[in-house]
Design a protein around this nucleic acid. Sequence first.
DNA 1: TCTGGTGGCGATACAGTGTATTGAGCGATA
DNA 2: TATCGCTCAATACACTGTATCGCCACCAGA
Lengths: 237, 237
Amino acid sequence: MTNELVWDRPEPPSRPSPTPLSRALIVRTAIELADAGGLDEVSLRKVAAALNAGPMRLYGYIETKDELLDLMVDEVYGEITPPDPAADWRTGLRHIAHEIRNATKRHEWLIDLIGGRPNRGPNSLAFMESTLATVGFESIDEVMSAVGAVMAYVYGAVRNEITEIRAERSTGLTEEQWQRASGPYIERMLATGRYPTLARFIYDGSHPDPAQVFDRGLDYVLEGIATRHSPGSKRGG
Amino acid sequence: MTNELVWDRPEPPSRPSPTPLSRALIVRTAIELADAGGLDEVSLRKVAAALNAGPMRLYGYIETKDELLDLMVDEVYGEITPPDPAADWRTGLRHIAHEIRNATKRHEWLIDLIGGRPNRGPNSLAFMESTLATVGFESIDEVMSAVGAVMAYVYGAVRNEITEIRAERSTGLTEEQWQRASGPYIERMLATGRYPTLARFIYDGSHPDPAQVFDRGLDYVLEGIATRHSPGSKRGG
DNA sequence: TCTGGTGGCGATACAGTGTATTGAGCGATA
DNA sequence: TATCGCTCAATACACTGTATCGCCACCAGA
């Protein structure tokens, strides 16, 4: 066995001194990528690359990509502050609704993951806990349907908002321009006369602040809950 | 140039007599695949294969895959029957809410596409037209927020339902079993004592019919709209 | 100091995706 | 009959998630 020195032997590839990893670090990195460039930027290869690691290294910390996504969602649930326990159910639910909306403003991708699969991480459970706790109705079923309705509304409303934002971003048309029927396609469709009501709305509709729209819809739901439940059955305001 | 007969020249691949295609046929096929096996079954290759065609052939009828998805959504909007024009706004909106819910029952994948990108196909526009038309408030803004709130609620509620159904399907646990904390993980989490309210709800909660849950939440929203808008400003019931 | 195992991690591989490009065959036209 | 143009299949590319393999550094024991 020759032991001679071979001067042109390639050096071992200079590894960029592997970062020590952890599940938390991976999740944080994935969230940063998603915040910056959307969910498309969260591929195992890209997350790994951002950590100076090979793709397969991540599998030491997570089972599958879906698990990573679940962890990201739960992490964001951790950013949500619970309502003041002394608050009445209405302020409590309103607080939570705003918290969710704000969280998805910070992390637009959230709306694509939340509700897509059941979220049962510790932070999600804590969120459910404080949400249920803030509604002090006596009847469990009444609490469930009140919370369910509010969450359903919040989810749908936020989704609509984000979708609009994305559409603006990708078409370059603001919703206002769209509503003036700037798109040639829309213009053509309206010109067919098959959508008279819609046309009237598009041309005459005003453009309220999205936050106000959200609050108004939320108020419908809360008001409906309030009138449907006999005053005797609730605690607090 | 030799013209000799080469006996071992391979025959041109016996084409299975290419089906004549059309955008409508492609969309219908994609919907069938999605109904049967979920959105995962809708890849250009699979759709094309189902039509005895190569993947690239579809590009003669479709610009991109996203366009195909948009067309699928619009097709389903076409299945939705508008409310009776004579109906008051409340029955009208209720009708539409149920139509949407039923449509997503028939096509579960719909909930993953709807709202994800703006839907402006002819059927979607017709749907918006009849929805707006059924709410005869005088103020355009009031109509918009009423319709917006109802649609947001419907969207979120249906999404929750479908997510539950899918979770049941994939875990084999019915929601009822889950609520008895059959999952060892959930059981462990509840045992930590950090989620007292949640635990109480899981153990003591009843299991109302999903349709009733949906209707109840919908009723909150409608009731809220009704009480928030002065009676003088609405037409019909 | 040498040896043998072990475990972490990179490289490779595979099946799948959407889509751009290429090229072959056919029908219509000059 | 020669050629053009069109239609579609084949090929190719970059990318995905993930299974498998194999190298290499480290550590235990002799």
